[in-house]
Computed example of a mutant assay.
Amino acid sequence: MTRTAKILHLAALTAAATLYIISTSAAYAQSRANCGPRDAVVQRLAEGYGETRQSVGIGSNNAMVEVFASDDTGSWTILVTMPSGVSCLVASGQSFEQVAEALPAKGSDA
Score class of each variant (00 low, 15 high):
N61G: 02
V56N: 15
M64R: 13
G48R: 00
D39K: 12
R38W: 03
Q43A: 12
G36R: 02
E66A: 08
R53E: 15
Y49Q: 11
V41S: 01
G36E: 01
G57M: 12
S55P: 04
E66D: 07
N34E: 15
Y49W: 14
A63C: 08
D39L: 15
I58M: 09
A46K: 12
Q30E: 12
A40Y: 03
R38K: 13
V42F: 04
P37E: 13
A33K: 05
V42D: 01
L45N: 01
E66K: 03
C35M: 07
S60A: 06
G48S: 09
E51H: 02
Y49A: 10
G57C: 06
A46Y: 09
E47Y: 02
Q54N: 12
A46Q: 13
V41H: 00
R38V: 04
G48M: 02
A40M: 11
Q43N: 14
V67M: 12
D39Y: 11
V67F: 07
G57S: 13
E66T: 02
Q43W: 05
G48H: 05
N61F: 04
L45E: 00
S55E: 12
D39Q: 14
M64L: 07
N34V: 08
Q30I: 09
M64F: 11
M64G: 02
E47A: 09
V42Y: 02
I58F: 06
V42K: 04
Y49P: 00
S31G: 09
V41F: 00
I58Y: 03
R53V: 09
G50C: 07
P37L: 06
Q54I: 13
S60I: 08
A33M: 09
I58K: 07
E66F: 02
Q30C: 01
G36W: 03
L45K: 00
T52L: 10
I58S: 04
Q30G: 04
